[in-house]
Amino acid sequence: MDEQRKKLASLNEQEAENMAVEQFTKLYNEIDEKDLDMSKLELALRNTFSAGTYYKEAVMDEEKERTKSYVNGIEEMRDAANDIYHDAED
């Protein structure tokens, strides 16, 4: 996972929400609606939804990484136990 997604995943939901509100309020205030093929509100809502999805995906990816690490550790312990068991049988 890239650094940007890791940083985003490290935020709690309130921090991520505050960051999105700040970014999309700025976008809403700075954009000229004449340059859009949709309303400013629709643009802000679409971007906000995308940001929420991106945040949740980053959090899920981070959880998968953590889980994979635990699973790998357990598998290594199992393999080591099997090796010890087989050595003891011989």
Results as ranks from 00 to 15, higher is better:
1 M>V: 14
2 D>R: 04
2 D>E: 13
3 E>A: 05
4 Q>W: 04
6 K>N: 00
7 K>V: 07
7 K>Q: 14
8 L>K: 01
10 S>W: 00
11 L>Y: 13
11 L>D: 03
13 E>H: 07
13 E>F: 05
15 E>F: 08
15 E>G: 07
15 E>C: 09
16 A>S: 01
17 E>C: 04
17 E>P: 00
18 N>Y: 13
18 N>H: 12
19 M>A: 15
21 V>Y: 04
21 V>G: 04
23 Q>N: 14
23 Q>R: 14
24 F>K: 07
25 T>A: 10
25 T>N: 12
25 T>M: 09
26 K>E: 11
28 Y>P: 06
29 N>D: 15
30 E>M: 10
31 I>M: 14
31 I>S: 11
35 D>K: 13
36 L>F: 08
36 L>H: 10
37 D>V: 09
40 K>Q: 07
40 K>N: 06
40 K>C: 07
40 K>H: 05
41 L>N: 08
42 E>C: 05
42 E>I: 07
42 E>L: 09
44 A>N: 01
44 A>I: 00
45 L>C: 05
46 R>G: 03
46 R>S: 06
46 R>P: 00
48 T>S: 12
48 T>R: 03
50 S>P: 02
50 S>R: 13
51 A>K: 04
51 A>P: 01
52 G>M: 01
53 T>Q: 13
53 T>F: 12
54 Y>C: 08
54 Y>F: 14
55 Y>P: 02
55 Y>E: 04
57 E>H: 02
57 E>L: 04
58 A>M: 00
62 E>N: 14
62 E>P: 00
65 E>N: 13
66 R>P: 02
66 R>I: 11
67 T>L: 15
68 K>S: 10
69 S>D: 12
69 S>M: 09
70 Y>D: 10
70 Y>C: 04
71 V>M: 08
71 V>L: 10
72 N>V: 03
73 G>I: 03
73 G>Q: 06
74 I>N: 05
74 I>W: 09
74 I>Q: 12
75 E>S: 11
75 E>K: 12
75 E>D: 14
76 E>F: 09
76 E>D: 15
77 M>W: 02
78 R>Q: 11
78 R>H: 09
80 A>K: 14
81 A>Q: 12
81 A>E: 14
82 N>I: 11
82 N>E: 13
83 D>W: 06
83 D>M: 06
83 D>C: 01
84 I>L: 10
84 I>E: 10
84 I>T: 06
84 I>S: 05
86 H>Q: 15
87 D>G: 03
88 A>W: 15
88 A>P: 03
88 A>R: 15
88 A>L: 15
89 E>S: 03
89 E>K: 08
